[in-house]
């Protein structure tokens, strides 16, 4: 291969390498700017990623929906439609495909279909994970964040834990996590367990 072609190929690749993260930044910024903000009630637990650092996994209250469809498989995409209830997110409906509805939606992942059986009297419902269940935190704050919520939940000092999520056209960005309306980062600094 001639040197000039190699150089051109490298320049194209370098641009793609810059474009991918830049495009990620741009699409997230668009959602933050133009998307509607919802508060999702949640509970944090702390795992970590070998390359991207510590994060807290968020277990949302919105995590299951009654269904009569028994063909759901683990790992299926779930279109979760959300409506606004005084700023907080409320589950509207779920679907396998995109449907015409005037509420916002996000695409979650089916985790488990809990069937009604002889022993399980609860109606059949689908459990799912919402896509914005990772909140990256400083490595010294992720574990305390989990501990502070776990230890204080019982003594009722913690009234509300929620994630502030911007949603636009099915894309969501988790902006911050709040404990009693204070950002979790500040709350951990103020109340180290």
């Amino acid at each position: 291969m001639k040197k000039i072609y190699i150089l051109i190929a490298f320049c194209v690749l370098a641009l793609i390498q810059i474009f991918i993260p830049a495009q990620m930044v741009l699409s997230q910024e668009t959602v933050l700017e133009k998307g509607k903000a919802y508060k999702f009630i949640t509970r944090p637990i702390d795992p970590n990623d070998p390359f991207r650092g510590k994060y807290i996994t968020l277990r949302y209250e919105i995590n299951s929906f009654r269904t009569i469809d028994t063909t759901w498989q683990r790992g299926d995409d779930v279109y979760v439609y959300i409506k606004d209830s005084l700023g907080f997110a409320k589950l509207d409906t779920i679907s396998k495909q995109k449907i015409v509805r005037d509420t916002d939606y996000v695409i979650g992942k089916a985790t488990w279909l809990n069937r009604k059986t002889e022993w399980n009297k609860r109606p059949t419902h689908l459990n799912f994970d919402l896509p914005f269940n990772r909140f990256y935190m400083n490595e010294n704050k992720a574990k305390p964040a989990e501990d502070v919520v776990r230890l204080r939940r019982n003594d009722s000092t913690i009234k509300r834990v929620y994630g502030l999520v911007h949603i636009k056209d099915g894309t969501s960005v988790l902006k911050d996590v709040f404990i009693n309306d204070i950002s979790i980062k500040e709350y951990v600094e103020q109340n180290r367990p």
Binding site: Q17, I20, P21, M24, V25, Q28, D49, P50, F51, R52, G53, Y55, P131, F132, N133, R134, F135, Y136, V173, L174
Partner: peptide, 20 residues
């Protein structure tokens, strides 16, 4: 790797380890 990783971290992009 560090560049995509840090962008994911800043915006809490949920993608799992395999897609990254």
């Amino acid at each position: 790797g560090s560049s995509i990783g840090l962008v994911s971290q800043i915006y809490n992009i949920p993608g799992d380890l395999s897609s990254y």
